[in-house]
């Protein structure tokens, strides 16, 4: 009989060793192994730090807001690293100050839509049937309206401000997230371990948060990293029709649309804000990929 042939002793250390290495530390250790993820993290941190300390690097009022027609359309040089725009404002100052609003919008819209999407999508996917039908049909009807039109209508009704912009973008982005969450949840709930969890007496909420979502997270992470850049671009679209960021406030998307008439002879005007958007989304993407792998124990080492 197996229990009579105990060939190893109970050791608290084995369990303790695990506790010490557990969770965050373990994920971090695995994340560090991915060079691309670390590059992404580095670039992203740099951008965030630049945004945080923008005031110390370039003065907001005098460099990024006040017009200085004498210095207009200068190519990049030692005083104006990224050159100046048509109003003579320092492009570098506007890019790093613009990062604040762009990142704020990108991250907060994504975070809120992911949160709402997770709830709606997992409830729809897990319960199925009528609940699924009702939630998904409502989301479908939102999705049937072009995102930009929907945000535009919401901003037009609520008034032009950053919180309202966040609300408008969130409403437009929730259906997409909910769909992806639902689809990934559906691939997971057929597994026997969900049933095993029920047999262990877990409640619905804990089954979803501990068994379903962690195993459905791969596609969701990818969607999250794509969404930040997509929100920034969508805000640019709104600014273009005058319902986004009010000039002269710097914002990457708005800067792109402001510079379009000078793009032909002064391409650096769109190059730097564009590069900022690309770098943010690329670094998030790399980080997201690495994070997804680090969170999955099956891909360990």
């Amino acid at each position: 009989m197996t229990s009579k042939t105990a060939n190893w002793e109970f050791s608290e250390e084995l369990f303790e060793e695990y506790k010490k290495k557990s969770q965050i530390a373990e994920v971090w250790r695995r994340l560090k192994k991915s060079k691309t993820a670390m590059l992404g993290l580095f670039v992203l941190t740099t951008i965030i730090l630049l945004a945080l300390f923008a005031d110390l690097i370039r003065n907001y009022q005098s460099m990024a807001i006040e017009q200085n027609i004498m210095n207009r359309l200068q190519s990049p040089n030692s005083t104006h690293w990224f050159g100046t725009d048509a109003q003579g404002r320092d492009l570098f100052a506007r890019v790093i100050h613009g990062a604040r609003i762009s990142l704020l919008l990108g991250f907060s819209c994504t975070a809120i839509s992911v949160f709402v999407g997770l709830i709606l999508g997992s409830v729809a996917g897990y319960f199925g049937g009528k609940i699924d039908g009702v939630i998904m049909r409502i989301l479908d009807s939102i999705m049937s309206i072009p995102a930009i039109l929907l945000s535009l209508a919401i901003v037009a009704v609520l008034g032009q401000s950053i919180p309202n912009l966040i609300i408008a973008m969130t409403v437009a982005y929730v259906p997409g997230f909910a769909r992806i969450v639902r689809a990934s949840v559906l691939t997971v709930i057929g597994n026997e371990y969900i049933e095993a969890a029920k047999a262990s007496g877990l409640g619905t909420f804990r089954i979803i948060s501990k068994y379903v979502l962690p195993n459905a997270f791969g596609p969701i992470i990818v969607e999250i990293t794509m969404s930040v850049a997509s929100v920034i671009k969508a805000v640019a679209g709104l600014s273009f029709i005058g319902l986004g960021i009010i000039p002269p406030t710097p914002e990457w998307g708005a800067m792109l649309s402001e510079s379009r008439e000078f793009m032909r002879y002064n391409p650096y005007l769109v190059l730097y804000p564009g590069l900022a958007i690309v770098l943010t989304s690329l670094s998030l993407n790399l980080l997201g990929d690495g994070l997804r792998d680090a969170l999955d124990p099956r891909l360990k080492d």
């Binding site: 695990y18 597994n191 026997e192 371990y193 049933e195 095993a196 969890a197 007496g201 877990l202 195993n215």
Partner: peptide, 29 residues
Amino acid sequence: MQMIFQDPYASLNPRMTVSEIIAEPIRIM
């Protein structure tokens, strides 16, 4: 009343360690 499942490849949550899996019903109940 407990259950042993058919497919040992599908009946264990891939994100939990052996000790977590075995401890789960104890913790819940």
